[in-house]
Amino acid sequence: MTLAKRIIPCLDVAGGRVVKGVNFKDLVDAGDPVELAKRYDIEGADELTFLDISASVEERATTLEIVRRTAEQVFIPLTVGGGIRSAENVNELLRAGADKVSVNTAAIARPDLINEISDRFGNQVLVLSVDARRAATKSGFEVTTHGGRQSSGLDALAWIEVGISRGVGEILLNSMDADGTKSGFDIEMLKAVREISSVPVIASGGAGKISDFALAIAAGADAVLAASVFHFGDFTIADVKKDLAKHGFSIRTLS
């Protein structure tokens, strides 16, 4: 009995559609979220992540509806992030069928948000999404906001420690240097975060080749998240799992 390493496709959602860009810019349409969610479930995704990158309140209502429709048809865990500013936002998403939520910018602006969500729903419900890049901070990594466009002034490792002590149950570590480049995960950053994290760590940003995933897991990732390589069919989740199994990592196989 071994806990399987998780493969998580990420669906960036805006205005009811899945979109994808490079470094959060030049967004192109990548399909219907519910259809993609169903496809990934069949292909063996261990979880799904929806990231709501909508600009307006109306679009966010659309996202809630997508969460509802997805949860009715797909019976694997669903994480939703983007635009969560209160425990009440979390309550709405959980009631719509989300299992976990991720917070990012709003938690940086108001760290008490972490405690408010965790105290009410438990730490297993809360993922701290950290958009980090290399910088001249204490650990050599800083936290960015606004999709990597602005520096928050926070050291990434210090912020992750604060997040864990306030009650997050998981870290989604997104490398803004590697995001969209398909040049591989930031292994050095991943190792540094694994070293200090007592909660599971999801590696994100930079997946380009099948072999990138085993490297991230060898560096200590408990799960690996990717978007465009799966959306655009570079390879499948099953291809990744086969490679992980070859490297001796535990994976979930479908019967």
Binding site: M1, T2, L3, A4, K5, R6, D46, N123, Q124, G169, E170, S197, S198, V199, P200, D222, A223, R252
Partner: peptide, 13 residues
């Protein structure tokens, strides 16, 4: 366990 929560897919005896 060193890392908690126990989160993900595991087998059962």
């Amino acid at each position: 366990a060193a890392i908690l929560p126990h989160m993900g897919w595991n087998t059962v005896a």
